[in-house]
Amino acid sequence: MRPAAVFTGLAGMAVVASLLMAAEARLRGGTGGEDTTAAEAPEMGPAAEITSETGGRLAPISDADAEIIARAAQPAAPSPASTERMTATPADPPPPPDTPGGQAAGPAAKKPIELTRPVAENAGVLSFGERRLQLAGIVPTPTDRICGPAGRQWPCGMLAKTALRQLLRNRSLTCDLGMAEWKGTATAACRLGTQDLGTWLAENGWAEAEAGSPLGVVAEKAKQAQKGIYGGDPRRK
């Protein structure tokens, strides 16, 4: 219970006790100890009366005194802060974990998905309508790349793209993806039959291998053999 409520209750009890004592003093001083009968008592109207335990009537209490007693007997209204604490609900429990142990679910496992009508945008990036797919393990060769020394330069990027298009010939591919539909550009290993496209580009020198890629060995062999972008213009041979 709050201190304000305790103080209000004690004040009310003190008012009631003082009024009772005042009424008893009036009775003893005005009647000389004799009981006042109903015929001798003046009209009190709506004023209240207090009756003693022996059945005798005590001095009447005015309306103002009765209202004070009634207000003192009423419990104090709770403060907004205490009401808020009483009505507050416990916090919502934390949501259950996605997987046992509280760990969030990982990305979807990749699986072979057949993709039709691939278009080579360059030696390393394929398009399927508005979606794009970069072959894993290699650095795509941009179509505007120029190779060779001064005076013997040639458009190696465009020829690398042409070589990949001639290999595909609009045939369906099998790519390792987490979902058949995606947005933007995804990265995946793709195969034409049993031939891995990234490996084919690295072996023939049409694309460089990514740092740390397992295709680094075959790409280095192509460089030593001066294949693709590491050699001269194949159109002059």
Rank of each mutant, 00 (worst) to 15 (best):
Thr89Glu: 11
Pro100Ile: 08
Lys110Leu: 14
Leu115Arg: 02
Gly102Ala: 06
Thr89Gly: 04
Lys110Met: 13
Gly102Trp: 01
Pro118Val: 11
Pro97Asn: 02
Gly102Glu: 05
Ile113Leu: 04
Pro96Lys: 12
Asp92Thr: 12
Thr99Gly: 08
Asp92Arg: 11
Gly101His: 09
Pro95His: 01
Thr89Val: 08
Ala109Pro: 03
Glu114Pro: 01
Ile113Cys: 00
Lys111Ile: 13
Pro93Ile: 03
Asp92Lys: 10
Pro94Met: 04
Ala108Thr: 14
Asp92Gln: 12
Pro94Gly: 02
Pro95Gly: 01
Ala109Gln: 11
Pro94Thr: 02
Pro95Ser: 05
Ala109Cys: 05
Thr116Pro: 04
Lys111Glu: 13
Pro90Leu: 08
Thr89Gln: 11
Pro118Met: 11
Gln103Arg: 15
Ala104Lys: 12
Leu115Glu: 02
Gln103Leu: 13
Ala109His: 07
Glu114Arg: 11
Pro90Ile: 04
Gly102Pro: 04
Arg117Pro: 06
Gln103Ala: 15
Pro95Cys: 02
Glu114Ala: 11
Arg117Glu: 15
Gln103Val: 14
Lys110Val: 15
Thr99Leu: 14
Ala91Gln: 02
Gly102Lys: 01
Arg117Tyr: 14
Pro107His: 03
Ala109Met: 07
Ala88Met: 15
Pro96Ala: 15
Pro100Cys: 10
Ala108Tyr: 06
Gly101Cys: 13
Gly102Cys: 04
Ala108Ser: 15
Pro107Met: 05
Leu115Gly: 01
Pro100Leu: 13
Ala104His: 08
Pro95Tyr: 01
Pro96Asn: 10
Pro107Glu: 08
Glu114Asp: 07
Gly101Thr: 13
Thr116Met: 10
Ala88Asn: 13
Lys110Cys: 11
Gln103Thr: 15
Pro118Asp: 11
Pro94His: 03
Pro118Ile: 10
Ile113Ser: 03
Asp98Cys: 07
Thr116Val: 13
Pro97Trp: 05
Pro90Gln: 08
Ala88Lys: 14
Asp92Ala: 15
Ala104Glu: 09
Arg117Ala: 15
Pro112Lys: 02
Pro96Tyr: 05
